[in-house]
Design a protein around this nucleic acid. Structure first.
Lengths: 217, 217, 217, 217
DNA sequence: AATGAATGAGACTTCATTCAT
DNA sequence: CATGAATGAAGTCTCATTCAT
């Protein structure tokens, strides 16, 4: 299943690392993240279990890499879009964010599970490096928000950035029941009727939040 | 440690169930929730491991019961407070909510871990019953919010209630690093400087959210 | 295969612990000690792998228990024999020791491998407790030697005891080739001709050692 | 770190083989032998893991080579010393042996671990060749002993040689606790007080053994 | 009702060895 | 000859759950 037999140079190694992450991503989407074993990832990637440990020191490091891959891509897409044109108003901004997350179904889920991952078997230096990159991303996204929200948010970008992420995580948890609960909900019409749509709910909630932060914008 | 040797009638059985939950609560606060084993809970409760299964079908049901106990208590306290006097403004409401959560340190944590619990080994009927009670609580808290926010929130209580909870979960995750990450943060002044205080951060974020929802209130 | 389904009281538990040790002993004799896995021991004992960990914290603790069981038995037999009649001379003492070891084929082997076991995954308190018991056994055997060797060994029992054990371990290593080497030896007559017999070789070597220690005895 | 990039002729290949052995020796002394991986040896030697397998069929062959290197050197030093002057008495001989071992800290350790190595993954032909060389060395050392001990040991050199080695291995095991046990001992004064010094203990034990073998010498 | 011994699937990780490059 | 990525079997240990007592 792997394209190349042996990843010899840096480029091939990076591709192989990505292969592993892709395999993990496929499995996460298909079933449930917490049920994911290194064994299963290796099988899905068409590699031996030991090979995974050549690319990731521990399982947790792999998950972290998965999250960061998505976040970097997402952040880049936000920055690219803002460079072209800033959202016209809060609702547009909120919808843009929500739409971007829909394209990366795993990112929100991984972010929500982050605490569990961080508590696992993670070398301290990996945890620290992750945190430092998280700070950088928070600031970068904060800068985007400041530009979009105008003078009112000046200097508050990082905080707002965190509030936005808090809302994303929270709405995700409420609007995206995991498979098992999904099944339960589907057995009861009155519960099904109260189902929320993640994208629109998040857009609405973020709009309200932004409205509250920067009333006139 | 258990007061009675054998729980014969319904009252005694309920008390014993509560004993187990109290033991779990003590342990959760002391250390980390995900590292909690049935063995440890049984020991803390002064009971045998097997006995726990007389009161809870699975570990997950136990955690769910723990969460619900806290939520019911919290909801009752909210309702009691609102019956006496409604919060004077958004900030007062936000601070009241944040303060109530501080008094129940486990509730927020359990709520944040809910997806993991729900994906675990949980009988379908238990999951369903939990969900139905969650709906009831959501509506009850929603009604409180409608009363506090006035005409603007009319009919939106349940949704707002969920947004508020989303914000609680999200801010919790960002402001309460788990022990390991806490240690890592403490090793770096520049990270320590960015530490957030859960209570005040939540109050600010909720205030903004409420301001956005009901601008004039 | 296990006699009783569940070991409920202390006696049954001790018997079960012994069952596990017996299973390990059977496997050690049959094949090679270092090839012994907890998995194999559990299978041989007719128990689940996890059950072994109810009786021994780690694999190393199990091996230590195996060794101690043999040593206690051996020491008791030495003391019993000496209580009845002291060996008449050095050669008689040496032969008695060698004969006692032949009856416990595992003891010498385990003793020889002790360093490897002690370097494994052994809780510090278990290691300490083992060492303290080893000291007691050394002194007890030393007392036996002092009685047998007469005035010359007075106060030197413990040291002599250790020299005797050193000789036992060393001769064992030279005279008892492990299966693989045994096969190799058998393929060459000139090597086979130099084969040593553990029992007689040890008896001779110990006799010499005792002669050197206590010339007139 | 390796002097030459590619070992082309026999001389260079032998030097490279020695480089590997030297690297292994450095690591053995620094830490614990059983924890030594081919990876670590390769790194220390400045070579790739695969390269090691060009010089040694298996890990065990490498360890065997290490032991033999030390033994050949030691034997040569014994023969050289005896050619100059024979030890004046048993104690002098014993002290000479003990001192020679102190200079080769690895030799004793490797000899003690020999059974484990021999039981590992060792090609039969390698095992056989090792054994044949061991016989030669045993005889050579035996001849030295016969010369030193005089007529009494005539024809017994090889046996005595093995007894001496048995004593060396045994005293080594008793007097040189591995790091973990060393730590445990250091936590208890009563255990620390019973610590043995390898060199002097071996000298005493060997003196006694020689006295027993050849009383008048 | 209570116990706690027993289960056993499953997790992560290591490392000697191989072999494509 | 040299490399080092890949292998994969093997290992130890955990823990939610069951069930004989």
């Amino acid at each position: 299943m792997p394209q190349i037999r042996r990843a010899m140079n840096a480029g091939q190694k990076e591709r192989r690392r990505d292969d592993v992450l892709d395999a993990a991503r496929r499995l996460c989407i298909g079933s449930d993240m917490s049920a994911l074993s290194m064994d299963a990832i290796a099988r899905e990637a068409g590699l031996a279990k030991g090979t995974l440990y050549l690319y990731f020191q521990t399982k947790e490091e792999l998950f972290l890499a998965l999250l960061e891959q998505d976040m970097e891509g997402w952040l880049a897409s936000v920055e690219a879009a803002f460079a072209e044109a800033l959202p016209s108003d809060h609702r547009a901004l909120a919808k843009f964010i929500a739409a971007g997350l829909i394209e990366r179904p795993l990112m929100t889920q991984l972010f929500a599970r982050l605490p569990a991952v961080l508590e696992g078997n993670l070398p301290d230096d990996v945890a620290l490096a992750f945190r430092l990159r998280t700070v950088r991303r928070t600031d970068a996204f904060g800068a985007c928000l400041e530009r979009a929200l105008g003078p009112i948010a000046q200097g508050q970008g990082a905080r707002l950035s965190q509030w936005v992420f808090a809302m994303i995580v929270g709405v995700h948890q409420i609007a995206n029941p995991r498979p098992r609960m999904q099944r339960v909900l589907e057995s009861r019409p009155e519960l099904l009727a109260r189902r929320l749509d993640f994208e629109s709910e998040l857009a609405d909630a973020l709009t309200a939040l932004l409205d509250g932060i920067a009333p006139t914008a």
